[in-house]
Design a protein around this nucleic acid. Structure first.
Lengths: 185, 185
DNA sequence: TCTCCTTGGGCACACCGACGCGCATCTACC
DNA sequence: GGTAGATGCGCGTCGGTGTGCCCAAGGAGA
């Protein structure tokens, strides 16, 4: 059976195996689980046998663990990573947006529209200055001008838009390496 | 054969099939290619037959196209997406860092160290104010204090560190939807 | 208009490997 | 000593994958 893209996330049933203790320690995963996750993060299509030798398990044991990791929701999905530069999207822009008002209605209106912007890949509501930060992908600066005109400036309740361009990307990780750091069990 | 995680990226050989024209149009992919990519972005472990019915091709034709997409570098890798909240990483922090000097040597020194920070998942060199913006994942605010102390404050040549917390994440996409928009062929 | 050639699609088949199951074993803990 | 959880081995089945071959459509050239 092929594994479907997204797994149901059943609330942790067994009281014995909580995902992690409230404080910050005792993750219910051991070294081998983390090794499996680390490998799947790199190569999601590895077969059981292939993973088994890398982790140091039999393929049976590995299959059981991998399925458990899926069922318990540690693995959300398996996805192909595209090379966006092949699509011409080489320019990353960080956009800071302040709204006219911080009323709940204004936030809702803004957020309902920003999810529709096809060039926006990330949007955070920020603390402090109470505004949004977006990450936008564009082909180049001219293209960003178009995005600014056709997507961003049409967002509702916007008071101020401030853009800064990324000259270079030094780090780009899906998962912080700290996750694979020390096992707890 | 299982597909390995990362593919060699042979420079586009055939002069006839450039990835895309310099300007901004005429991507060398048609609707079906984009459908394959969209589907693999969601479910990287789909079998040829499974994908074939979704795209409307035979499994043979689909296998050929998928292999081509890999060979031409459109697909960089297949990777498992982890649910970081399962690891307690629920707090996203945007950190702005200004250096004491913008000398090439200072930039190099800083960048050499920032890639080693295990809690940093993103780092951009920004235009304008000539500083860096990092995206950091932490368990909570206390944990970020620890990260600030043990990771960030040890970075070389730093003049100023300014942190703001993300209260909520409105958009989180790996690929801008604009990619799957209109086919060119 | 006819033909040749190229490009891409579909069908059929065979092989190989992955997958899942059952069972025995081992260890830790009570 | 017994139980529970986890591992490893062996096996059979099933399905995916890759190949060879033929076909259809479109373009170029004579």
């Amino acid at each position: 059976m092929q594994i479907s893209a997204s797994f149901g996330k059943p609330a942790p049933v067994s009281g014995a195996k909580l995902p992690f203790h409230a404080g910050n320690e005792t993750l219910a995963l051991d070294r081998k689980d983390l090794a499996i996750l680390a490998e799947l993060t790199t190569n999601a299509r590895a077969s059981h046998t292939e993973l088994a030798v890398k982790v140091g398990l039999s393929s049976t044991a590995l299959a059981r663990r991998q399925k458990a990791l899926e069922d318990e929701g540690y693995i959300q999905a398996y996805q192909a990573a595209l090379d966006l530069s092949q699509f011409g999207l080489t320019t990353t822009v960080l956009v800071r947006i302040a709204l006219e008002s911080q009323s709940d209605e204004a936030l809702k209106a803004f957020e309902a529209e920003v999810v529709k912007c096809p060039s926006v890949i990330r949007c955070f509501l920020m603390s402090g200055t109470d505004d949004y930060i977006l990450i936008v992908l564009a082909r180049d600066i001219q293209d960003f001008e178009r995005i600014h005109r056709t997507e961003l400036s049409r967002l509702p309740r916007v008071a101020r838009v401030q853009s800064s361009f990324a000259l270079r990307e030094i780090v780009n990780r899906a998962v912080p390496t700290v996750v694979f750091g020390q096992a707890k069990r």
